[in-house]
């Protein structure tokens, strides 16, 4: 028995269904479009939503980059990239600049995206209100009436208790002034990159069976209060490898005494800076 697959694994009917969903998602920025998500050969939680979006979008001329935690060489990124090499044969790259299509988990690259690029986000939980309201019927109604009081109360309570909004990743955003949306679990450091992005941003949640999108040049605001403006993370030390002071850093524990180093989470950015130096 030999098992043959269609280009990009999905059959054409499934791709067509997802493509129609993506067009709706782009037309209604930030709105979660339900779609008939399929089981992929990778487990739910590993990026099946992103994989289905990429599979529906990708063509023979594309150059694909896959990152997880900002890095091209983490095991899950390697696995997803090799899956697409197997089922499409397209060119792959680690270079943000060279890629036409980027699938990501938890980061937006440091190198600014350019017009024409498409970024596909893997999304575990597309509903920003889910931890505040478990029922899907309820949250859908809240979105329908743009009733986001729950979230404002939550953020306000954070401030009352901690003096800060205690959300450091998957920080909720208002898209085009209408829909509260989850940017996927990127650190809030990356949120400003969503605003007026030159690239098209597509979000796929496989297990939750939802798609959403942020078209290029779209207003994306991270929630904040006048007296508690939105701020991103910063580090006192630069990257130990490339010296960058502008990139998101991972903390590395180097010995049992608890010594620490900070290095760029974006491996392509860090490598190219070191090559230039």
């Amino acid at each position: 028995m030999k098992i043959e697959f269609n280009f990009a694994f999905l059959d054409e009917n499934t791709k067509r269904m997802i493509r129609r969903g993506l067009l709706k998602a782009v037309a209604i920025p930030g709105y979660q479009v339900p779609f008939g998500s399929r089981e992929m050969p990778l487990p739910y939680g590993w990026g099946t939503g992103g994989i289905q979006v990429t599979a529906s979008v990708i063509g023979r001329d594309d150059c694909l980059k896959v990152i997880d935690q900002g890095a091209d060489d983490t095991t899950n990124a390697v696995n997803i990239r090799s899956f697409f090499q197997k089922v499409t044969g397209v060119a792959t790259t680690t270079s943000t600049a060279r890629a036409s299509l980027i699938q990501t988990r938890h980061r937006i690259p440091e190198t600014p995206l350019r017009p024409g690029q498409i970024m596909v986000f893997q999304v575990p939980e597309p509903e920003p209100l889910r931890t505040l309201e478990a029922s899907e019927q309820e949250t859908r109604t809240l979105h329908a009436y743009q009733d986001y009081g729950l979230m404002h109360v939550k953020l306000y309570e954070d401030i009352a208790r901690h003096g800060h909004i205690a959300t450091s990743y998957d920080y909720p955003v208002m898209v085009n002034g209408r829909y509260l949306a989850s940017p996927s679990p990127i650190p809030k450091f990356d949120n400003p990159k969503l605003h007026h992005s030159p690239a098209l941003l597509l979000f796929g949640a496989g297990r939750e069976k939802r798609l959403h999108a942020i078209p290029p040049w779209t207003r994306v605001e991270s929630l904040a209060f006048d007296d508690h403006p939105f701020e991103v993370q910063g580090w006192e030390a630069p990257c130990s490898l490339c010296g960058s002071r502008d990139s998101y850093l991972d903390e590395i524990v180097t010995d049992n005494a608890g010594s620490r180093l900070y290095v760029c989470s974006d491996t392509d950015y860090c490598t190219s800076r070191r090559e230039e130096a």
Binding site: S168, Y169, Q233
Partner: peptide, 12 residues
């Protein structure tokens, strides 16, 4: 799976 970017955000 790796969550160290988010964990780093929480740590900070």
């Amino acid at each position: 799976l790796p969550h160290y970017v988010d964990f780093q955000a929480e740590l900070s």
